[in-house]
Design a protein around this nucleic acid. Structure first.
Lengths: 197, 197
DNA sequence: AGCGAGGCAGCACAGATGTGCTAAAAAGGC
DNA sequence: GCCTTTTTAGCACATCTGTGCTGCCTCGCT
């Protein structure tokens, strides 16, 4: 009774084909026909799993967020707050090819979010989740976070959050200028700065 | 002999029409016909000032960078390094409607730079210039920058640069979460941190 | 006044795109 | 083995896109 490839997994396979097309030709290159060719099916087969193109693209972007979330949740517990923060945030940086692809796709869709409401909804909730993660890390990182004014904590969270996305964007756009080692160094320096402030 | 509206200025007017279209409908909405309608001319008139669409889009993106550069160069001299850095970098953040538009357009084109070589060239040289600006500001900011290892300065430059673009992206994408006041606060906090390190 | 060149509009055309419709093929239950 | 449901292919159609081509209209010069 379990089909060899079920509906949900097929949708993920197609979404990954979208990633490859987007990396090669941008979001505007992710036409129904191009994605179908990349996935190895006919356009009509595609339409069986995604009724409209909007649905296809929205699902594809959600999958990026889901994959990252899954990686973070699967992370082993680490006692030291700096190291924990390093591990968690590293999952969001383009440190290897898989995450480079994710980041590039994310950036491409981000631009589309400026004008596409359904994409924007996915993006907003994802960024909210990332901000919450940053908040948790900062609270564990700052010595007396409990007794600190909320505005001060908020400031640190915003700063960390902005740095994180800045690093991600830079490294995804210009990998030749940002080695994984340099990304980690900057992140680590910033985290140390929060702890020792 | 001076025409009422000369060639170069007409090109800028058209590029500004592109900005408005991109803000409304994204880069993929910036078709020749849409831009012509926005600018109030026929598509043929457009083709008189820009032979191909690529030329139009590349020029439009360059104009964003040129405007920002001009604003920075026109800035009055400020003795205090923190205040100077604040003033300079503020010109790159979406603190008002004009700069919000610039940032949104920049982000949209940035995504296209992933696949469009001519756009990428503009983007790379602009980012190099911004990095150079950051370097200058950091050198003035850090007390003993001259005697500091080059790698340490480089680290601070990268961190500032990433924070700057992270702030810009966040504020452009979600203005409702980033008031100009909050942007300035985070920037100021980071600059103070560099000075007092 | 006449003329030549540049600025502009309109149309045309080939290609691509999203999506609907119809039928064939495959799969699965009895 | 047959029949129903799901999955896939193929085609069509209206729309939109970049860009080439042709002609008009309006300046500026002599």
């Amino acid at each position: 009774m379990p089909k060899v490839v079920d509906h949900a997994e097929r949708r993920s396979q197609i979404a990954e084909a979208v990633w490859r097309v987007v990396r090669r030709d941008g979001v505007e290159g992710a036409t129904v026909r191009a994605v179908a060719a990349e996935a190895g099916w006919s356009p009509s087969a595609l339409r069986h799993y995604f009724v409209t193109q909007d649905e296809l693209l929205t699902f594809t972007m959600s999958l990026v967020a889901d994959r990252a979330r899954a990686r973070i949740e699967a992370l082993p517990a680490v006692a030291d707050p700096v190291r924990r923060a390093e591990r968690v945030l590293s999952e969001l940086l383009p440190l290897d090819d898989e995450r480079r692809t994710e980041n590039a796709v994310w950036i491409a869709f981000n631009a589309r979010a400026l004008v596409d409401p359904s994409i924007r909804a996915v993006r907003d909730s994802t960024y909210d989740a990332i901000r919450a993660v940053c908040h948790g890390l900062v609270v564990d990182l700052v010595p007396g976070a409990g007794s600190l004014p909320r505005a001060d904590v908020d400031l640190l969270v915003r700063e960390l959050n902005a740095l994180l996305d800045g690093l991600a964007v830079h490294a995804a756009l210009r990998p030749e200028l940002w080695s994984p080692r340099q990304l980690r160094q900057v992140l680590r320096h910033h985290l140390d700065g929060i702890r020792d402030r």
